[in-house]
Amino acid sequence: MIQARRDVLLALGLFCASRAIWCDNAQADAPGDRDTASKTALRFGLTPVILDDRIAFLRLWANWLEQQLNRPVVFVQRSRYREIMDLLLRDRLDLAWICGYPYVQHQQALSLIAVPKFQGQPLYQSYIIVATESPFESLSDLQGRLFAWSDPDSNSGYLYPRFALMAQGHDPDHFFRRTFFTWGHRHCIEAVAAGLADGAAVDSYVWETLALRNPELTQGTRIILRSPLFGFPPLVGAPGLADTDLQTIRRVLLAQEANQTGNRLLGELSLDGFVAAQPSLFREIARMAETVRPGSAP
């Protein structure tokens, strides 16, 4: 509650700061600003790969992007990766922040715009977590237990744990007594902390960010397995995204860490910045996807 209030205050502070900058720019570049509203909005899809429940922050980021891109920016949120993917593939979105797993599945149709830098590099992990007080020490201890997946299209919350079980010679569909989806990494952490599930697989970026912002939540969980490093969930362009737009967006994103307000917004996301990346960054995810394909549907 207090944390939330602090976030709102911080967001308001940022908002004021950004308004000030916006005003400066408006004076310098008035004609360009006037047609911001008239241009078609940039539709930006978000998935629970980030903490997408922070509306005030997202509004500030949209404001900043609008000002940088000189066109309206609309964030589109859905609770499930698949819905965002559908919208993206049908060009109902211009770009989206998606997981590496659906990216490698639709790599041909999508264009890689940028990958965020987390802890200095565009990489993250999957954490297998259990309740702090529980006796489990390894993934195999969870046999016959309750397990929470994050999303069937999540790399860290679904693909990797299944791959890891298969690598240990288990059948991921029958290894646990029962599994269910929570449709979010944060929910997975909550489910394990509350005792709803015995274990869960979560995005290391989400867990670490929550450990900083809501330590009382992550304190109820303990990491028993850290995956190898994978490519961080990327920002990808829709099949129909014009190349000029793609370049503009990429330029803005790559320059965000150099901009004072943009950098503060990145700090809010616990990210260091965005980098351009090659599809090869997701090779490992593609390999796992290939391995688990026959039983990929839950």
């Binding site: 269910f180 989806f181 929570t182 449709w183 489910a191 509350a194 709803l196």
Partner: peptide
């Protein structure tokens, strides 16, 4: 729909 999380999050309420 066999949606455990939905049922749990509803029963849990805002302040568990």
């Amino acid at each position: 729909h066999d949606d455990v999380w939905l049922a749990y999050s509803l029963l849990r309420g805002p302040e568990e």
